[in-house]
Nucleic acid binder design. Structure first.
Length: 131
RNA sequence: GCAGUCGGACGGUUUGUCGCUGGCACACUUUUAUGGGGGUGCGAGAGGAAAGUCCGGGCAGCGCAGGGCAUCCCACUUCCUAAUAUAGAAGGAGUCCGCAAGGGUUGAGUAAUGCAGAAGAAAACAACCGCAUGAAUAAGUUGCAAACCUCGGUUUGCUUCUUUUUGUGUAAGGGUGAGAAGGUGAGGUAAGAGCUCACCAGCGAUGUGGCGACACUAUCGGCUGUGCAUCUUGGGAGCUGCAAGUUCAUGUAAACUACCGCCAUCAGGGUAGCCCGCCCGACAGUUCGGUAGAGGGUAGAACGCUUAAGCCAUGAGGUGACUCAUUGGAUUGGAUAAAUGACAGACCAUUCUUCGGAAUGACAGAACCCGGCUUAUAGUUCGACUGCUUUC
RNA sequence: GGUGCCUUGGAUGAGUGGCUUAGUCACCGGUCUGCAAAACCGCUUACACCCGUUCGAAUCGGGUAGGCACCU
């Protein structure tokens, strides 16, 4: 399995985002990230591949004032998801629904990659268990 | 050598693996078709400030017969740029700071009107103290004369000075203030005063130089307080901003347009603050009911969207900003819950070092596009210049 | 991306060029009380920062920093 991250894996629909944050969805925190997730239908990308999970990364302006730092955190989270998404995908392979995830950054200081990757792996395992 | 001023350039390099965005080529798939989709290969992918949004322009939509007033903005000069006297740059001018190289800053006009805390007699009208002089009467006083007597004084008249009251003159003085009728000296006067004169500072006129701001010296004019506001003069300004706006698919609202009907009321209504003017006029507007039309907003997709008032070199013109060229050359960021990344290694800088090595990599991330300004910025580097010191 | 606004004692908040600033609440200290509450009295370096205009700036102008709202 290739560790890609194409456009249809990103969450960009305003309606789904509103639904995700409206309440009633499960969430938990593995410092420095908070995760909100929701069951949805699986989407099919242009080449016929089914995409079981789509994600969103949010870094609040209050915690990181400069755009450089916000971009850096988003890229780190995205990269660690890309390298480890197989955990979630294999768990959802034989299910008939998909999952939508939102990562929210909770820390004030810039995290380093190895730390964040461990954190993301932990989160993905927990989501895979619960679904 | 030390201290300093101004201006410019760069702002980590590179290899591998795994990804993202868009470009080109190739074949594939899907669709009636334009087209859409992923795959493989090739080469590309943040800045000097991308930032602040302090200015200006392009571009886009809406509005708009015309004129005046009001409102707001601008204000040393010449010149440059798309930017009209506005944002800025260059050459100058005035003024302030610095020994200097240099740096900061800006004056439209003052005819009229108003205001100026505290302090001060007074903030420019006057009044007051003071000075000078006239008068008055009262008191004191100097001198002279006359009369009287106890011969030393008393009384009366004139007179000198002082005090008091009052009229007139008074831009000296009143030492407070940011500012006190330009300053110093002499003459002059009852006392004083540009009242007169000499020198000095400023202003106005004439002259000379300069495109001009302005400068200069000479002559003439006694013309001379500071700040703010009103005011006056000249010039400029329609509003909103790519979340502008255009197109597609979906669908029709209590909003819009046209027509019809009914009821009541006003004489006017529109022209984006007011007036003139212009337009409409018993139409329009308001309330209710009906019919028809056209279609807003939200969510989605596409366009706008990147080759340009652009950049580099050469030549010519100009002190310079900059401009010109039948000149030559290179142009590949275009995202949209938002790409330009992550990891590992080598090198390069800086710091620490037990000399093995270790740590760190400034400020900061395009959001329609340009030009300027401002602010942040580790480190490296180039050029021009100034002052002081030393040596030759 | 664009547009508009705000910043004054610890908190709130008045002050449109003239005595480093009105009031309210809170804190602390004092008076009062056997002790407290209430009441009364007192108290708090720089008006966010820098520069300019002015004789004089919280106030006027320019810049910087921080914060808020709207286009939603």
């Amino acid at each position: 399995m290739r560790n890609t991250f194409c456009k249809s894996e990103r969450l960009n629909s305003k309606l789904i985002i509103d639904k995700l944050f409206a309440g009633g969805n499960s969430s938990f925190t593995v410092f420095p990230l908070r995760v909100v997730y929701m069951k949805t239908e699986k989407t099919v990308s242009g080449n016929g591949q089914t995409i079981p999970a789509s994600i969103l990364i949010s870094v609040p302006k209050k915690r990181f004032h400069h755009a450089v730092d916000r971009n850096r955190v988003k890229r780190l989270v995205r990269e660690s998801y890309r390298l480890n998404k197989s955990i979630l995908w294999e768990a959802l392979e034989d299910k008939d629904y998909g999952v939508t995830l939102a990562f929210v950054c909770m820390t004030d200081t810039l995290p380093d990659f190895k730390h964040l990757e461990k954190c993301v792996v932990k989160i993905l395992r927990r989501v895979a268990e619960k679904c």
